[in-house]
């Protein structure tokens, strides 16, 4: 088994053959936790309920397209890395996805597993760094608050 941490990868595609193929590969080649869904609605529910590191979404889906879905993910979990998996290259949609959904990577079907694995690994690292910065920023903020409190008490005591 690989050395990767137990990061969570969420996959949504309305074609079950795609979600099963991706899950089979990732379970075999990595130790990530894999969640797969065939509707954006169910997938968004999972985004609300679970810690997610990387989201891979199909472009053409019923209910909402992949860009709208990833946009909704961005609002809920800005730290999650967002990847679009599309049936054919379309420059207009790629640009839309980058602008609207803060896309990290644009993958085309049929995809290459080795390439996909590298993209996901980098995406997991990115999400981890994002979280670490959030934690450090929080620590810095509370340290700053502590310092301000101390200063206030000093002033009250001696001035």
């Amino acid at each position: 088994m690989s050395e990767e941490q137990k990061a969570t990868i969420l996959i949504v595609d309305d074609e079950e053959m795609v979600t099963t193929a991706l899950r089979s590969f990732l379970q075999l080649a990595t130790s990530y936790r894999i969640l797969t869904y065939t509707t954006p609605r169910e997938a968004l529910q999972a985004v609300d309920d679970e810690f997610i590191d990387v989201v891979i979404a199909d472009f053409l889906m019923p209910e909402m397209d992949g860009i709208a879905f990833l946009k909704a993910v961005r609002e809920r979990r800005p730290e999650a890395t967002r990847i679009l998996l599309t049936g054919y290259a379309d420059k207009e949609n790629a640009i839309r996805a980058i602008n609207e959904a803060g896309l990290y990577y644009y993958l085309e079907k049929p995809w290459d597993n080795d390439h996909l694995q590298v993209v996901i690994r980098n995406g997991v690292e990115r999400a981890a760094l994002f979280r670490e910065i959030e934690i450090k920023a929080g620590e810095l903020e509370s340290a700053h608050d502590d310092l301000a409190g101390l200063r206030k008490r000093l002033i009250q005591a001696f001035v």
Partner: peptide, 24 residues
């Protein structure tokens, strides 16, 4: 263009599965 898109989805699955079978 529509047909190419329709074929790329199952083709993606088959290509990935071939790799999975090799690894297994």
């Amino acid at each position: 263009a529509g047909l190419a898109h329709e074929v790329n989805t199952p083709l993606g699955a088959i290509r990935s599965n071939r790799d999975v079978l090799q690894r297994a």
